[in-house]
C-alpha cells in the first residue's frame, strides 16, 4: 500500500473555527472534504501537508438550497448530493445530469463540488458548465466574504484564486429562467473526460459555449453565427496537448465534434 506522511487533523465545528485555522496554519494546511483528489496526491507524495482541516463535520455546510434567484450549493455537498437533490433537478437539471456522470459512484459519494473546483484538476466536468451558467464561488476568510465568478476562480492546472487563508463556503448558480436551455456533453474513454462542452442558451440569445477538460481551464468560445461558426471558433480557441487521452490534433477535432453535438442537443 502507498503510505501517507503524518499530519495533524483538525475538525472545526463551525465556519468561524475553520476560518481561524486557515489564518493560523496558512499554506501548511490543506482543506479536506471528500479527499477524492487530495488523498490521491498525498498517497503519491505529490503534495504534503502538516495539517488537514476536515470541514465535513461543520453542520449545514452541505446544504443545497434556493436563496433568492440562485441555487446555493454548500461546500461539502457531494456530487451524489447534487445528483439526487430534487432542487437541483428542478432548477438546473443539466447540473444533476453532470453530477450523475462524474467519475464513478464511489467518487460521487465522497467527492464534493467545491473540492473539485478548489483542486483545479483540468480534466474535470463541473467547471465548464458552471462557467457557462455564470456560477460564482463564495469565499470566506477571517477578513470577510467575497464572491468570484468560477471563470475567474479557475486560474490554471491545479491553480485557483483561493487564498491560503480562505475556504469555499458555497457554489452559487443563478437560477436559469424557464426558457433557458442548458446541456453538458462529454467524451470520455479513461477515468476523466477528454473533452467536455457546456452550452447554455438564455431566452433565445446566442448560446454561451464553454469547453472544459482540454485546456488548463475552461475556454469560453466567442462566436455568434450558427453551429459552424461555433465549431470552427472552438477548434481555434482550444490549445490541447498530447497525452494519454489522445493527441492534440485528435482533441482539437473532438472539440469541434462535441461542440456541434452540444449545440444540436440544445436546439432539439
Amino acid at each position: 500500500m502507498q503510505i501517507l506522511s503524518d499530519f495533524q487533523l483538525h475538525r472545526p465545528a463551525s465556519l468561524d473555527e475553520a476560518v481561524q485555522l486557515r489564518s493560523e496554519l496558512g499554506d501548511g494546511a490543506a482543506l479536506y472534504a471528500g479527499g477524492t483528489e487530495l488523498l490521491l496526491a498525498l498517497k503519491m507524495g505529490v503534495l504534503e501537508y502538516e495539517h488537514l482541516i476536515d470541514v465535513k463535520r461543520i453542520p449545514g455546510l452541505n446544504a443545497i438550497e434556493v436563496q433568492g434567484a440562485a441555487l446555493r450549493i454548500g461546500a461539502t455537498a457531494t456530487h451524489r448530493d447534487i445528483e439526487t437533490s430534487p432542487l437541483v433537478a428542478e432548477h438546473v437539471p443539466a447540473l444533476s445530469k453532470l453530477a450523475r456522470h462524474v467519475a464513478n459512484v464511489r467518487v460521487r459519494a465522497a467527492g464534493t463540488l467545491a473540492g473539485n473546483l478548489a483542486f483545479g484538476e483540468p480534466h474535470a466536468d463541473p467547471a465548464a458548465l458552471l462557467v457557462a451558467l455564470g456560477a460564482t464561488v463564495e469565499l470566506l476568510s477571517s477578513g470577510g466574504r467575497r464572491s468570484l465568478p468560477v471563470e475567474q476562480f479557475a486560474v490554471g492546472a491545479y491553480e485557483t484564486e483561493l487564498g491560503e487563508d480562505e475556504l469555499i463556503e458555497a457554489v452559487v448558480v443563478p437560477l436559469p429562467t424557464a426558457q433557458t436551455r442548458a446541456t453538458y456533453l462529454k467524451f470520455q474513454v479513461l477515468e476523466r473526460p477528454t473533452v467536455g462542452v457546456a452550452a447554455v442558451a438564455r431566452d433565445g440569445d446566442a448560446p454561451t459555449v464553454v469547453v472544459g477538460a482540454v485546456d488548463e481551464k475552461p475556454v469560453r468560445i466567442e462566436a455568434s453565427d450558427g453551429v459552424e461558426d461555433y465549431v470552427n471558433a472552438a477548434r481555434d480557441a482550444v490549445d490541447p496537448v498530447d497525452d494519454l487521452s489522445g493527441s492534440a490534433e485528435y482533441k482539437r477535432h473532438l472539440t469541434g465534434v462535441i461542440v456541434r453535438r452540444a449545440l444540436e442537443a440544445l436546439a432539439a
Binding site: 500500500m1 502507498q2 487533523l9 479527499g35 477524492t36 488523498l39 490521491l40 498517497k43 451524489r80 467519475a103 464513478n104 459512484v105 464511489r106 467518487v107 459519494a109 465522497a110 477515468e191
Partner: peptide, 28 residues
Amino acid sequence: PSCEMEVCGACAVQLDGLPVSACTTLAI
C-alpha cells in the same frame, strides 16, 4: 488493494450505506 486510485472498485465498502473506495478513504 488493487488500483489504489478509486478506479477499479476492488476495495469498495459501504460507509453509512454508500460505496466508497477504502483505498482512498482515511480510517478516521
